[in-house]
């Protein structure tokens, strides 16, 4: 694999955890090709996280770049106490929250009253298919509510962890989650 290749280096089809760990060690020593292998393994999940939390693909693609560039810079500090996936996800969540706080005034706006949440129907009702896309419904939630929903129900973070990351109280996280589920359910059932 040369450094000029446009595609990230492939791991063999029967890639084992130890092969990935070896790639991580080599990447920590400065091997960019090895980091490309790590990227290939973890990029889809990181992209999914970014796409769901940010609500649009363009921002998500930019954020994936930021996450992996930051991961490269900080890789030396990864000691392996947690799984690399967890480490990357936490890094990604932190960067996403940082970006939202810096670029959007309403970045962490939560749905405090029913008016903050999109009503069922409307644009979504006009979709050609009756089947409503979950991703599209998620995108319609306010940023704060969507983040709590994604972090808890999809990424598996606890309310305490979400509270620590976002700066809200665990009780607020719970309330936002339940409210977001209700509205999402209504949108999907519409």
């Amino acid at each position: 694999m040369t450094g000029d290749s446009l595609a990230p280096p492939r791991l063999a089809a029967n890639t084992t955890d130890s092969a990935v760990e070896d790639a991580v060690r080599r990447a920590q020593a400065g091997d960019v090709d090895a980091f490309g292998m790590v990227y290939r393994v973890h990029a889809p999940a990181i992209h999914a996280l970014c796409r769901r939390m940010l609500g649009n693909d363009e921002d998500a693609r930019e954020m994936v770049q930021d996450v992996f560039v930051r991961a490269w810079e900080k890789l030396a500090s990864f000691r392996g106490e947690s799984a690399l996936r967890t480490w990357l996800h936490r890094l990604g969540v932190n960067l996403i929250l940082e970006r939202l706080r810096a670029t959007r005034r309403d970045a962490l706006r939560f749905a405090d009253d029913p008016g903050d949440l999109p009503a069922a129907g409307g644009t979504l009702d006009r979709r050609l298919d009756a089947e409503i896309d979950l991703a599209a419904a998620l995108d319609r939630l306010p940023n704060g509510s969507r983040m709590v929903l994604v972090l808890h129900d999809i990424e598996g973070y606890s309310h305490e962890e979400i509270a620590a990351m976002t700066g809200i109280a665990p009780g607020t996280s719970r309330a936002q989650l339940w409210r977001a589920r209700r509205h999402l359910s209504r949108m999907l059932d519409a």
Partner: peptide, 27 residues
């Protein structure tokens, strides 16, 4: 709903297409 969210396939992304830009920034 919760099951559907957890089972939702990851958004399709051509992650390989993003690698050259990442590599360039790293270099």
């Amino acid at each position: 709903l919760i099951h559907r969210m957890r089972a939702e396939p990851m958004p399709n992304a051509e992650v390989e297409a993003m690698w050259p830009a990442i590599r360039q920034r790293i270099e």
